[in-house]
Nucleic acid binder design. Structure first.
Length: 822
RNA sequence: GCCGGAGUGGCGGAAUUGGCAGACGCCCAAGAUUUAAAAUCUUGUGGCCCGAUAGGGCCGUGCCGGUUCAAAUCCGGCCUCCGGCACCA
């Protein structure tokens, strides 16, 4: 076993050098940027943390990656903006505060202190004077301002609706915060509650949010796909069905208008608003009502489960299929959702599996209208719906057409005859932003008996969150208790009024913070348009994939709204996005409850920050999840100690007679490899591996004295420069030891000599029938003829070659394959 | 069910316009050093087999097939795992 931890002496004095350099960077303000200087700007942003508890090494991955990118860009002469802040409002902080009986403001600010210390101890540097804290009035004033801007635009509205309610958190939730029918925070099954709530009209931007992803090549495919799924665009036709014995219509949405001739019944959602009037004269009215009430009261998870029982009932009414005037029965069923489409569905049992099952159970007719080109379908003996493409049958004038073509024709026909209209529907719902909780930004409107809902004027902002409140949640906003807060005057008529007591979803706070960093101190506006337009979009955004939908979709939405209102000149906030993988311990995500949290504090004490950084970067491709290994950390430490000793070992090595070319080649190839890995993006693990190779070579050359002094010096300096974004403290210290002036941050990234990266002698593998049989050394650029001669003269090759005609495949500078015909 | 990603030694992982599979690190073993150990330095390290050694052979990138002089990589058909969506009409 390795005994580093018990040693009296450290393998290298990281405990001395690390605090020294952190102080130095801080004092010299290397990470503080002047936003007016945007000539060669680079905005490097990490998702701002939630100050709920101490950080673990998994969190560190995010900050370390960001720090490496910032330092690397700085060495390329970029003016790098790398800010940080705190997503400080919200449930976890509040819940912890309740549990420990401490005011959330205090616990949040305490947590921030701890996290600041930890971030600093990693050697991760930020532009600290730009720090923002979303729970402080100078920030949330502008969150409230954004709400007012949306309200002005008609993009914030209040409506009574069935909303997601978490009985444990005692608040409503946005659709995006409900995962498998459960609260994303506490996993309590979510209930439906009929409440009047504030929404943001994100659905107005559904198309833009979807289409504009085409302009984001710097985003990971998986994130774009997730957003695409979430938005859930489907195109089809809204078809109007006249109701029999009535002058009214029912409209349904379908994506399969080609199956319209096979519609043999129609089904309404239990919540359908027209339902009550339709059944008021039914004989079994009370029975139908009972069914509807039961269906409505079914829990959402139960009702939306794929294998849930499909229950339905005939309403006694009929509708007319507008393409063939056939009278078809109207049903109500639990599987039709009011939230999607029109809440009415045309049922085509022959070509929809769900309808097929329902028709079978309730004895409804099945009519084939798309035939299988391979063998004719027969409704009598079908075992399942035919959902593939085929040829139109029983469909009047459209018979004989391929169904895909008929789809377009029928849609056109319906629009001409005014019986239907092409239509687009989305899965995306409007964003519910009201929360019945204490720890959030108050919604800046008041209710006046005379004037109704009145938005507060900008000069009345911020609406301060009162501090002396019993903040324990109980189903209504705790702010209702504060008479001082609630009772106010109407800004319009000056009459008595009361304030909105709900607070905003935390995701509103985090949907615009990247703009505030540009003008964090501005008292007169949320941000300076000129500066923001220079610095955004963010050049590189880095964060966890868990925000693929929530935060990233909301931020894009808010950016688009601000753009359309003329407040900013760009409509996508993040040009490049990198989502790092999770760090796993013992096969599971690190969490307090599982007891597998690896704290950076002890590790940094034992091995130093540079070791923790290096291991975090070397653990694997940063976009993938990775298992934390204590052995791996020791390996990283051993390597850094080896680099430390390298400077001593090489200082008096090298032979005057040696030209050092071999080492110089390796040095320059390493510069090329590391630069390539960094430029292609986030290839830290392979970049570090290639520096390790160079270090191994330096040791070998130095110990055998098979190189020159100058080549060694160049190699050693290169190692220090290439490692400096990864292990900045060690790099600064060694840079000084090599007789150079600090800071290494001000050094240019090394460039390589093209002449030195090409090989002097190439080792060419020789295959015979695709199997490796020999290798020969040749000069690069050797002619095919000369190469062939050399290959055929090779002893090993000769063994395999009989007296046969053969063919040589020559891939210049790479490989030779000899083909012997069988 | 639909969509996206992945599957390579004992382990983390390298290698992609098809061209030496296993870089680098971990683990493990041996040697040097040491009174001894740790640390350090050096060497070895995919599996099976032939060989005293030098050396050589066969197999091998989830599975089955195909294309090709040549496949981890391309094509067809599967399997497994991870993630997203899903009674969405």
């Amino acid at each position: 076993m390795l005994q580093y931890g018990n040693m009296k002496e450290k393998a290298y004095p990281f405990d001395k050098i690390e605090p020294k350099w952190r102080k130095y960077w801080n004092k010299n303000k290397f990470f503080e940027v002047n936003v007016k200087n945007f000539a060669k700007k680079y905005y490097c942003l990490v998702m701002f943390p939630y100050p709920s508890a101490a950080l673990h090494v998994g969190h560190g991955r995010n900050y370390i990656i960001g720090d490496v990118v910032a330092r690397y860009k700085m060495m390329h002469g970029f003016n790098v903006l790398t800010p940080i802040g705190w997503d400080a409002f919200g449930l976890p902080a509040e819940n912890a505060a309740i549990k420990n009986n401490i005011h959330p403001k205090k616990s949040t600010l305490d947590n921030i202190k701890t996290m600041k210390r930890q971030i600093d101890s990693w050697g991760v540097c930020y532009d600290w004077p730009r720090e923002v804290t979303s729970c402080l009035p100078d920030y949330y004033k502008w969150t409230q301002w954004i709400f007012l801007k949306l309200l002005e635009k008609g993009l914030a509205y209040k409506k009574k609706a069935f909303v997601n309610w978490c009985p444990s958190c005692n608040t409503t939730l946005a659709n995006e915060q409900v995962i498998d029918g459960k609260c994303e925070r506490c996993e309590t099954p979510v209930k439906q509650k009929d409440l009047e709530q504030w929404f943001f009209r994100i659905t107005d931007y559904a198309d833009k949010l979807l289409n504009d992803m085409n302009g984001l090549p710097g985003w990971p495919e998986r994130v774009k796909v997730m957003q695409k799924n979430w938005i859930g665009r489907s195109t089809g036709v809204n078809i109007h069905f006249p109701i029999a014995d009535s002058d009214k219509m029912l409209t349904c949405f379908t994506t399969r208008v080609d199956t319209i001739f096979g519609a043999t019944y129609m089904v309404l959602a239990p919540e359908h608003p027209g339902l009550e009037a339709l059944i008021k004269d039914a004989k079994n009215k009370s029975e139908i009502f009972k069914f509807i009430e039961e269906a409505k009261n079914e829990s959402r998870i139960k009702r939306s489960a794929v294998d849930a029982e499909k229950k339905g009932m005939f309403t006694g009414r009929y509708v007319i299929n507008p393409v063939n005037n056939r009278k078809i029965p109207l049903w109500v069923a639990n599987y039709v959702l009011m939230e999607y489409g029109t809440g009415a569905v045309m049922a085509v049992p022959a070509h929809d599996q769900r309808d097929f099952e329902f028709a079978g159970k309730h004895n409804l007719p099945i009519e084939v209208v798309i035939d299988d080109p391979k063998f004719s379908l027969d409704a009598e003996i079908m075992k399942q719906a035919y959902v593939k493409n085929g040829v139109m049958v029983n469909s009047g004038q459209f018979n004989g057409m391929p169904n895909r073509e008929a789809m377009e024709r029928i849609a056109g026909f319906m629009e001409k005859e005014k019986i239907g209209k092409r239509s687009v529907h989305y899965r995306l719902r409007d964003w519910l932003i009201s929360r019945q909780r204490y720890w959030g930004a108050p919604i800046p409107v008041i209710y006046c008996d005379k004037c109704g809902v009145v938005p507060l004027p900008e000069k009345a902002l911020p609406v301060l969150l009162p501090e002396k409140v019993k903040f324990k949640p109980r189903g209504e906003s705790p702010l209702k208790d504060s008479k001082e807060f609630v009772n106010t005057r109407c800004p319009k008529c000056k009459g008595s009024a009361h304030r909105e007591t709900d607070t905003m979803d935390t995701f509103v706070d985090s949907s615009w913070y990247y703009l505030r960093y540009i003008s964090p101190k501005s008292k007169s506006k949320p941000f300076d348009k000129r500066d923001v337009d220079k610095w955004l979009p963010v050049d590189q955004y880095i964060g966890g994939v868990e925000h693929a939908i929530l935060h990233l979709l909301y931020s894009r939405f808010i950016t688009k709204v601000l753009h359309d209102s003329g407040f900013i000149g760009f409509d996508e906030p993040f040009r490049n996005l990198f989502t790092q993988g999770m760090i796993i311990k013992n096969g599971a995500k690190m969490s307090k409850s599982k007891g597998n949290v690896v704290s950076p504090d002890e590790l940094i004490k034992k091995y130093g920050a540079d070791t923790v950084r290096l291991y975090t970067l070397f653990i694997g491709p940063p976009e993938k999840d990775a298992e934390w290994s204590d052995r791996g950390v020791e390996g990283a430490y051993r390597f850094l100690a080896r680099v430390w000793r390298m400077v001593e070992i090489t200082s008096n090595s090298g032979l005057p007679g040696n030209d050092g070319k071999a080492l110089r080649r390796k040095t320059h190839r390493t510069i090329k490899k590391v630069t390539g890995d960094m430029e292609k993006g986030f290839g830290f693990n392979t970049a570090i591996a290639s520096v390790m190779e160079l270090v191994n070579e330096i040791y070998a050359a130095s110990l055998k004295k098979e190189t020159s002094k100058s080549a060694l010096k160049e190699a050693v300096k290169t190692v220090v420069l290439l490692l400096s974004p990864f292990v900045p403290h060690l790099a600064e210290e060694l840079w000084g030891k090599l007789g150079e002036k600090p800071s290494i941050l001000k050094q240019a990234w090394p460039s390589y000599d093209k002449g030195l990266v090409v090989e002097e002698i190439l080792t060419i593998p020789i295959q015979i029938n695709g199997k490796l049989r020999s290798k020969i050394d040749v000069p690069p650029g050797i002619s095919d003829e000369a190469l062939k001669e050399k290959v055929l003269a090779d002893e090993k090759v000769k063994k395999y070659l009989g007296d046969v005609t053969l063919k040589l495949i020559i891939i210049p500078n790479r490989l030779v394959n000899i083909v012997i015909p069988k």
